[in-house]
Amino acid sequence: MDRLLLDYIPPVFQGLLEPIATTEQPEIDALWDACLSALDDQYIISATSYGITRWESILGITPKGSDTLEVRRFRIQTRLNEDLPYTWNRLSQSLSALCGDGQYHMAMTGPYELSVRLALTSKKNLDDAIEMVKRMAPANLVLVVDLLYNQHQQIAAYTHQQLSAYTHTQIRSEVMS
Rank of each mutant, 00 (worst) to 15 (best):
M1L: 10
M1C: 06
D2G: 09
D2R: 10
R3W: 15
Y8N: 12
P11D: 14
P11K: 07
F13V: 03
G15Y: 07
P19A: 10
I20Y: 06
I20Q: 10
A21H: 02
A21W: 02
T22V: 14
T23E: 13
T23P: 01
Q25F: 03
P26H: 02
E27G: 07
E27A: 14
I28S: 02
I28V: 14
A30S: 11
L31I: 15
L31V: 14
W32C: 07
D33W: 02
A34V: 04
C35A: 13
A38S: 13
D40Y: 05
Q42M: 15
Y43H: 13
Y43N: 11
I45C: 05
S46Y: 04
S49P: 04
S49L: 08
I52F: 06
R54N: 15
W55N: 01
E56N: 05
S57W: 07
I58R: 15
I58F: 14
L59W: 08
I61G: 00
T62K: 10
P63V: 11
K64A: 12
G65M: 05
S66K: 11
T68S: 12
L69W: 08
L69V: 09
E70M: 04
V71P: 00
V71R: 08
R75L: 10
Q77Y: 06
Q77N: 12
T78E: 12
T78R: 15
R79N: 02
E82D: 04
D83W: 08
P85I: 07
Y86S: 09
N89V: 07
N89W: 04
L91K: 02
L91H: 02
S92Y: 02
S92A: 08
S94T: 08
L95T: 00
S96H: 09
S96R: 11
D101I: 14
Q103T: 04
Q103K: 12
M108R: 10
E113R: 15
V116H: 00
R117M: 09
L118W: 00
A119R: 01
L120A: 05
L120T: 04
S122M: 04
K123M: 05
K124H: 13
N125A: 09
N125I: 00
L126C: 06
D127C: 08
D128E: 12
I130A: 07
I130E: 09
E131F: 04
M132H: 00
K134L: 12
K134H: 13
R135G: 08
M136D: 04
A137R: 00
A139Q: 14
A139H: 12
N140G: 03
V142I: 13
L143R: 03
L143V: 05
D146T: 14
L148N: 07
Y149Q: 08
Y149I: 07
N150I: 02
Q151C: 14
H152E: 15
Q153S: 11
I155G: 01
A156T: 07
A157W: 11
Y158F: 15
T159L: 10
T159K: 06
Q161W: 10
L163Y: 03
A165T: 09
A165F: 09
Q170E: 14
Q170H: 11
R172V: 03
R172K: 11
S173T: 06
S173M: 11
E174Q: 13
E174W: 07
S177A: 11
S177I: 07
